[in-house]
Design a protein around this nucleic acid. Sequence first.
DNA 1: CGATCATATCAATAGTTATTGAACTATTGG
DNA 2: CCAATAGTTCAATAACTATTGATATGATCG
Lengths: 99, 99
Amino acid sequence: MFKALGDPTRLRIFMFLSSCSPEVVVGEEGEVRPVVGATVGDVCCHVSGGNSLVSFHLKELRQAGLITMERRGKYMVCRIHTKAVEELGSFMCDPCGCQ
Amino acid sequence: MFKALGDPTRLRIFMFLSSCSPEVVVGEEGEVRPVVGATVGDVCCHVSGGNSLVSFHLKELRQAGLITMERRGKYMVCRIHTKAVEELGSFMCDPCGCQ
DNA sequence: CGATCATATCAATAGTTATTGAACTATTGG
DNA sequence: CCAATAGTTCAATAACTATTGATATGATCG
């Protein structure tokens, strides 16, 4: 995860997606589902470089577990993987795991 | 910082130093000072590769602001830079800065 | 079906980074 | 001052990664 966020382009993408993924919504039946997200095209607009570059970086972020992607018709919707982010956050609170 | 922690060797060093830097102590006059730390040699014992490699990675961690180093006689004492770690932690709580 | 839009993959390349061993600097103790 | 110990810097190399443009796949719409 650190490696994935270590690249400036990916960090930008990650931060952009964070602003597009304001958590999840708890539905009537108590089911949890994500609200919004950004398409690959949306991400492209916030990053210099072509779609192939963005696609490459999205794959890296996905493989690191930091984001998820889901097909919605002809679009791919990208979202922050909240759980992974929380994991990272708690790691920073206890980096050596000895506490 | 992410880039610095993205390397496995550096992450090991960082985690090791975390286990050696259990916060600071508040002295009798209310002054805050660090307690322990590890020498470069100590770090070498926990990482495969020679001292030159360790020195290289320590420099990277230092330049990223993640650790501090201080001469103590003929030793260099390395410590986690707590403030930077907190910064990272709070970044993870609000990655887009929009909250 | 064929055209078009959205995204992914591929191959080539340039740039960066980690690792190694050797040479160098700094500090202490005799 | 000399020798020994602790770290750092340097040069060479190998491995990896980001970026680019071209090509391919996948989905929708007329």
